[in-house]
Design a protein around this nucleic acid. Sequence first.
DNA 1: ACACATCTTAAGAATTTCTTCATATTTTCC
DNA 2: GGAAAATATGAAGAAATTCTTAAGATGTGT
Lengths: 229, 229
Amino acid sequence: MAAMTILVADDDKEIRDGIEIYLKNEGYRVLKAADGREALDLLGKEEVHLLILDIMMPNMDGITATFKIREAQNVPIIMLSAKVEESDKIHGLSVGADDYVSKPFQPMELMARVKSQLRRYVQLGTYDGGTTLEIDGLVLDEEAKTVTLEGAPVKLTPTEFKITELLMKHPGRVFSINEIYERVWNEEAYNAENIVAVHIRKIREKIEADPKNPRYIKVVWGVGYKIEK
Amino acid sequence: MAAMTILVADDDKEIRDGIEIYLKNEGYRVLKAADGREALDLLGKEEVHLLILDIMMPNMDGITATFKIREAQNVPIIMLSAKVEESDKIHGLSVGADDYVSKPFQPMELMARVKSQLRRYVQLGTYDGGTTLEIDGLVLDEEAKTVTLEGAPVKLTPTEFKITELLMKHPGRVFSINEIYERVWNEEAYNAENIVAVHIRKIREKIEADPKNPRYIKVVWGVGYKIEK
DNA sequence: ACACATCTTAAGAATTTCTTCATATTTTCC
DNA sequence: GGAAAATATGAAGAAATTCTTAAGATGTGT
């Protein structure tokens, strides 16, 4: 397998360089960033297979960065933090990070976690490029963020777009309301029923000729919503 | 999504039961084992989606168990340990565990990690539960939550679907009424006879041409129900 | 600061599903 | 064949889930 690329983002240069040494030693290619903004920029230009993000960084902290990254990518993220508080761990994990290591850490522990995450990641293959999805006359362009129905443009709000995108990416699969909420909003679902229901209705108003008998977004009673294959 | 099953192995009964309460509260089905050997036995009989293994257990420790499990399965494993030593963490992770929590732990942290691992497991498709089951013209799609009979769609309610799913997942095996109740409702069976019988009847109405002489769901007098292989 | 679009919250209505109970039928065993 | 146990059925009220409407909150750009 070609060398995996790992992006290390930490404002402390010593830590960046230290981690780099260990990673290179394991045969990985390493990119470095001093803050979240830099990390995002690099991520746009290079193919990265795993990120190690410090939580506290100038410009953009690790949690915000994770949030942004998760909007587009599914790459494994390991968070670093000096804080030992549990609340941070939970926050990091629920925001979309895949693992969490608190400073100071044993380099070998970090290496073990990198391997663990990478093993997972590789097994699936890679992520999906932003193409267009089409289902029975409904076309969604992930790059242009547009939707057309039988050729006619449909104007969806960002949230509506994300929900539609999620459902169209997995046609036929049923998503529970909580799952929709967690994957679109990127946070714990709490009392999400109403919120999701309202958005579903708005989407239906826009893409369904007869919202009472929806052609695309169907409800599976007691389970969730889906778009037919 | 059908309830995920989590296997908790710890030699301390209090910890097992404590974790169980939190997990059930989140809607998971919970199996318990007092040592590694028991855990492996259960794993052979039941479908498990995630394991929480204590490192120090009689008969077979968590690390050995992880090693054995990894020979056959790729299910997420979270390790528990009273030791705080880094060496254990590394050992645990490199042996094949997916995450590590040291005792004493905050229950909420453990829950966050369970969710995180499970989300990953499901999302990466490592989880093969999204397939279809078929028995003699009766097809059940676990992802789409649909059932077809000789190609014609059959509309089942959530409870009916879960019962059918359970029986079809283990064709030929007889499930007692109590077992059906406990696995579908995820709670203690108390006076469950009637309720299960009513649902069985409704399912038969929908999938049996002649409910009097059922082709799929057969009763084993005095024992329970099964679907023929 | 203002106008505009979007998101969230709340509450009741509409719908679907679950449970209960009474009664009927079938099977087993003596 | 008859009694006891187990399962099957029908219908109605209870419960849960989703839908709808509308108003208030939040955010964005000018």
